[in-house]
């Protein structure tokens, strides 16, 4: 048992999620290994965000089991509360920064709520996190309304990383960024994953980030995982949706040899 929990950060078994009569996720099983970056792809409205939000406990599930870092979400009902918080950090699609707090206060927020540290140490930690995601301490004084899209994502990532969680959930981290900023962000995630030993669960449509940063890619279609494996495995998958996804016009660049 311990060997299994040590290997996997997230284990999902037979998960069923639906709204009313509509079943969005139907008996889905997925394992995320420790220390890997898993990319999740799927059609728009196909349940990617629903799957992520179910794992982090924002949407109730109708059936199945979810285990995060060896904790069963049902057994530990408190996973949503104080126990959950230090275990994971979440980067929401729009950043979800608290608009009445400055960037620095946003990053400090999890520290302030979960720990009792001196203000000066919290300031230093927040500045360190901001610097690690490529922002300057001066940016820390800005309010979320004054930040650009890329900076918002960076601050949101810094906040997600504030407590050095073992798992980070990223919901479309590169959407709305220009290719340079998106590339920087990908590199940043890779670096942080290596230095902090993070497990990253990333919902994305960005083919370039799937190719460059993801260790494994999972394809979600018809309410279940239809293919999972390295990018090469998925490119050779025979599933019609996966084929359409990775062999469409926009995906041509994936097949060219980079060198």
């Amino acid at each position: 048992m311990d060997a299994v929990t040590d290997r996997y950060a997230i284990r999902v078994r037979d998960l069923v999620v639906g709204f009313g009569r509509r079943i969005v996720i139907d008996h889905l099983s997925l394992d995320v290994r420790r220390g890997e970056i898993l990319g999740l792809v799927g059609a728009s409205g196909g349940g990617k965000s629903v799957l992520m939000r179910t794992i982090i406990g924002l949407i109730p599930k109708m059936g199945g089991r979810i285990e995060v870092m060896g904790w069963d979400a049902d057994a530990a009902g408190a996973l949503n509360g104080h126990f959950g918080a230090p275990k994971w950090g979440i980067l929401f699609q729009q950043g979800a920064l608290f608009s009445s707090l400055t960037a620095r206060q946003n990053v400090q927020f999890p520290l302030r709520e979960n720990l009792s540290l001196s203000q000066s140490l919290m300031d230093e930690i927040a500045d360190a996190k901001l610097e690690m995601v490529g922002l300057s301490p001066e940016d820390g004084d800005k309010l979320p309304a004054e930040l650009s899209g890329g900076m918002t994502k960076r601050v949101a990532l810094a906040r997600a990383l504030a407590l050095d969680p073992a798992i980070v959930f990223l919901d479309e981290p590169t959407s709305g960024l220009d290719p340079i900023a998106a590339g920087d962000f990908d590199a940043l995630i890779k670096t942080l994953q290596k230095t902090l030993g993070l497990t990253v669960f990333m919902v994305t449509h960005d083919l370039a980030s799937l190719k460059t940063v993801c260790d494994r890619v999972a394809a979600l279609a018809d309410g279940g995982i239809v293919a999972i494996g390295s990018m090469d495995d998925l490119l050779h998958s025979e599933h019609p949706w996966v084929k359409a996804y990775f062999h469409g016009k926009r995906s041509l660049m994936l097949h060219k040899n980079p060198d």
Partner: peptide, 12 residues
């Protein structure tokens, strides 16, 4: 790597 990274921050 982490220690090396932290060494660089908060210099300004």
């Amino acid at each position: 790597e982490l220690i090396e990274d932290v060494r660089k921050v908060n210099r300004g």
